[in-house]
Structure formats: C-alpha cells, structure tokens
Amino acid sequence: MDPVIELENLSKCYGDFKAVDDLNLTIQKGEVFGLLGPNGAGKSTTILMMLGLTEPSGGSVKVCGLDATRHPVEVKRKVGYLPEDVGFYDDLTGFENLLFTARLNGQSDQQAYPKAAELLNKVGLGAHAEKKVGKYSRGMRQRLGLADVLVKDPEVIILDEPTLGIDPKGVKELLELILHLSREKGLTVLLSSHHLHQVQQICTRVGLFVTGKLIASGDVESLSSQLIAKHPYLIEAKIGDEFQDPVLRENLSKIPGVEEVTLLAEGLLHIGCSADNTAAIANAIMASGAQLTHLSKKTYGLDDIYQRYFENTTSHEVDQSS
C-alpha cells in the first residue's frame, strides 16, 4: 500500500485559536476516507492545507508524495477538490463551466469536449448540459461539482461537505455516484461531513475529528470498540410489569458473558454483555416469570459513537471548568 495523503504533526492556528492541533493521518491509495466531525472542528481547514490554499502553522502535508505547501500547483494537478457550497459561473452553461475547468487543466478542446459530455451524462446532467447553471437546482449543482472535479482526471478527490443542503434522496444518489465513480476510476476519496449515516454508507475508513484533533480513526466496527470499550454488545429487552426483580437479576447474571444489568423505567432492561447471548437471555427472562414483549440487540452505529463521544467531552469540559 502506498500512502496518498500523509499529514505529519499538522497544526494551524488563528491567533490563539488552534483550528488544527498536531494532526497525524495517513490515507492509502484506493481508500474512501470519511472525515467526520461537528461544524468548526477543523475539517475544512485541514482540507485547505492539503491543497495549499492556506499555509499550515506547523507540520507537513504530503499529497501524492509532494509537499502541498511548497508545490501547490503540482498537487492541484492531481487532486480534484469540491469546495463546500461550490459556485459556478451562472451565466455559462454547465457544459461551458466544465470546459473552462478542463482548459485550465491544460486540456485541448479535442480532449475536453468528449470528456465533459461524457461526465455530464454520468452524473445525470446530460439533458441539462446546455442550460445556464443559474437555473440549476442545488442537487444539480452538486452533481455538476462532481463532474467538475473529475474532468481533470484526478488521482485523489477531496469533497468538502458534498451532501450539504441536498434532500435525502439526492444525498443517496450523490453518494452512490461518488462510490461508483471512485471504484470505476480507482480513485482515492476523502470526504468530510457531519452526517454520520451518510459517511457510514460509503466510507471504508472514518476519522473522527473534534476541536482540531483526530480522536479516533478506523472502520466503523473498530471505532466502536475504540470508543465504547465498556460493552461490545448491548441487548435491550422490554418486559411486562409483573416480575420479581432480584430473581430476574440473579438468573441473568448466571449467563456467561453478561456483565451489567440495568433496569430503566417502564420495564426496559439494558443488558451489557461481552458476547452475543441473546437466546440465553430470552430464556432467562422467561424462566424468571416475566413477560417478554420485545428483545433486540443493539449495534453501535456511528451515531451512537458520536453521541457517546460527545457525552464524554461535555463531562470532560465540565470537569475542567469546575
């Protein structure tokens, strides 16, 4: 595996504020990496530094083996970047906008025309190619943005909040398109988002980014084990009102792997285990004379990971202030 993007001790300060704090990250070729974090976490700043659009205060950025701060033009030749809330020349058609980008990348008309037409068809804008971009909808602009990124034949594409402001159906289509195109051309993709579900859908690896620091990275499963080490499995059971609490608890704790039993309000039971024993738990509940109405195994999505993390940070911040 050869690394395409290497960030080493990267930091960026605005006055006293540290937007990016000592960041280390390596992205391999062919990965779809999701940069995940709340607004203002420093995702965009990191991306800007990768393209040489802003200078880092410390550390180094290497993209395709080139220093992005020293040789931004060479880097930009290989990297397609879709800025957050991308803008086009409204008085030109979608096709003309693509041609302009292609020409800026040193392509002759002979190369650029067929390519632009092909890409427009691929992103589903073939029918609107001759329409002025001013009349495009938000989703269409974003798809045009994707075509605009691909027109230069990049090795890496960096998408900053590509799904912002698009309706759910459009998001799904766009993400599928990104995945499809990246596989087809063997691209490395870096996309930033604060929407967990979307990132979860298409990313092979995710980095969680908070207040300028990468707090965890890996695929979704390894993230959940990194961040929620308490119990790998959580089983949620709903039982009827009439039961004897101590008996139930005793029965449950006999099952190997059960570590913690919490009774929440209205007969809602949370059982933390180290292994998946759903069937045994069901039997135990029945045996203790309770009525089982609902039993489900909770798996951790990114959402929970996210939430979990922020619970921690808030408490952490409270600790600091007190």
């Binding site: 930009k76 970047y81 800025p83 991308v86 605009d148």
Partner: peptide, 14 residues
C-alpha cells in the same frame, strides 16, 4: 461571493 474562487484556485494555476 459566487463561490468560484475556491474552485478556480484549486485548479493547477498560480
């Protein structure tokens, strides 16, 4: 203001 600056400057030009 049109948002085209970031797009143009991310192309290979000085």
């Amino acid at each position: 203001n049109r948002g085209t600056m970031a797009r143009v400057l991310s192309q290979p030009l000085y």
